[in-house]
Design a protein around this nucleic acid. Structure first.
Lengths: 119, 119
DNA sequence: TGAATATATGAACAATTATTCAAATATTCA
DNA sequence: TGAATATTTGAATAATTGTTCATATATTCA
């Protein structure tokens, strides 16, 4: 009786290990940003868009056609990709051409594929 | 009148480009698997677990402590990481130690970080 | 200017999913 | 064996999110 800790609070941990690892962790903001970035890759439609753009620049209508999706759905997803700086675009009249923004996309894609294919 | 296409079906596309890109696309299964893989990286809690395990092998309780989470929540997420072959584990008595399964995790993590930090 | 086309956008709906809570296993040790 | 600890698991809840549909905006061209 009169204990300061009840059962739920007790947890046996390797305190030295825990504080050592804690200090090496990236800050919460970077972890959040990383998760947000990978979340963008974590959808089949967006992954298909990325695969298509790995080949060449494409307009919204062509991407929709290639991915068997609607222009509206693709436009929504392109916005997500744009916000993460994964794609860029240029306008030519009423047509908007999208392309991959830098080489990281390809590198991340390839590393993912390596993992999948080596299992 | 008597047209075979109504407005919703009409879409002007660069057919040659579309079929060319279509042929280079990975099959749907690979695209799905890739999206599933990146989805696993796309959650802050799992990303924290991954960051911690980049340092050294850890038991469930210690991971929970490091990430300010509960053992139950961590256990659920470790199951997800296990299913994607991102972590492996070994049992020592009642303690289960988890560690990263191969070097792809670190590589994917690093590529993600490069993208974040170069913007 | 007005019709046609390409893209973007907002709201609504359905589906997915992370966490919590309670309870079940598994293991050690007195 | 029974208490204590570590982890797992299943169900429920709350929050997030992808697609659809209707509509808005932008651009070209007759």
């Amino acid at each position: 009786m009169n204990e300061e800790l009840n059962n739920e609070d007790i947890q046996i941990v390797d305190e030295e290990k825990v504080s050592r690892v804690r200090e090496t962790l990236p800050n919460d903001e970077l972890i959040f940003d990383l998760a947000e970035l990978f979340k963008v890759f974590g959808d089949s439609t967006r992954m298909k868009i990325i695969c298509a753009l790995l080949e060449e620049e494409l307009c919204v209508g062509d991407i929709a056609c290639i991915t068997n999706s609607t222009a509206s759905a693709i436009s929504h997803q392109l916005r997500v990709l744009k916000q993460s700086k994964l794609v860029k675009y240029r306008k030519e009249g009423k047509i908007v051409y999208y392309s991959l923004d830098d080489d990281h996309v390809k590198q991340i894609f390839e590393k993912g594929r390596e993992h999948i294919e080596e299992i």
